[in-house]
Design a protein around this nucleic acid. Structure first.
Lengths: 110, 110
DNA sequence: GAGATTTATCGTAAAAAAACGATAAAGACT
DNA sequence: AGTCTTTATCGTTTTTTTACGATAAATCTC
């Protein structure tokens, strides 16, 4: 405890773990799916779709922003969020690289 | 709080979030990579590779087990872990499905 | 059988995440 | 100007995660 051991790992592993953490809550998965479903950006509609308080949703959005998965712009009173496709593709690539690089094994064990 | 809001989401989203959570720590990423690197199962060697106490590593292994990503068998005094390839592929598929299903959008916004 | 190894579990402490209500700032609407 | 909407942030509480040392169980080794 007291210490942040995470920084002792390979940056590559830290990055993937961070991205995985951004996906590690059903609310954030649901937000991403909702954003993808609609062609246009949404804002407060997300709050109505999710079984969470507005402040909580705002927090989840902030985390997705910080992870780079979405981007948000202020549009008058409302805030408009949408998926950051470039980052999304890159992240998708990181995951599939992780899975496939790992998977080309013979499976001698167990 | 006090409540577990996670269960209010779609089972599909809960599952993906759970799997993402299993990957949401660099130690667990490193463990998976290490297991994949070696053809044979390993056990305590993982502890030597990671900058963590033995008990902590054991805990991370337990989480990977519970997520189904790895399987472990007791081999004498030592415990032998390896990647659960079937589950691994399935999980890999879930992630890429999530990413690709989401990605076929026009990108009208932002 | 005595001692050494290996590993899982227990207990505990610190840190982070999840969640909410309340509030504040910024625009919209009369 | 005054009110209503929308959303981000603050403060707080609860829960979960991370991490360790100590210990116990099981197996080797001598």
């Amino acid at each position: 405890m007291t210490s942040l051991k995470k920084t002792l790992f390979a940056p590559e592993d830290q990055l993937l773990a961070e991205l995985a953490k951004a996906l590690a809550h059903p609310a954030r998965i649901a937000i991403l799916k909702e954003l993808a479903k609609r062609d246009m950006c949404i804002c407060g509609e997300i709050v109505e779709v999710l079984p969470l308080a507005q402040s909580t949703v705002s927090q989840h959005l902030k985390e997705l922003l910080q992870a780079g998965l979405i981007k948000g712009t202020v549009d008058g009173v409302k805030s408009c969020y949408c998926i950051n496709w470039e980052a999304f593709d890159k992240i998708s690539g990181l995951f599939s690289a992780f899975f496939s690089k790992t998977a080309e094994k013979s499976g001698k064990c167990c």
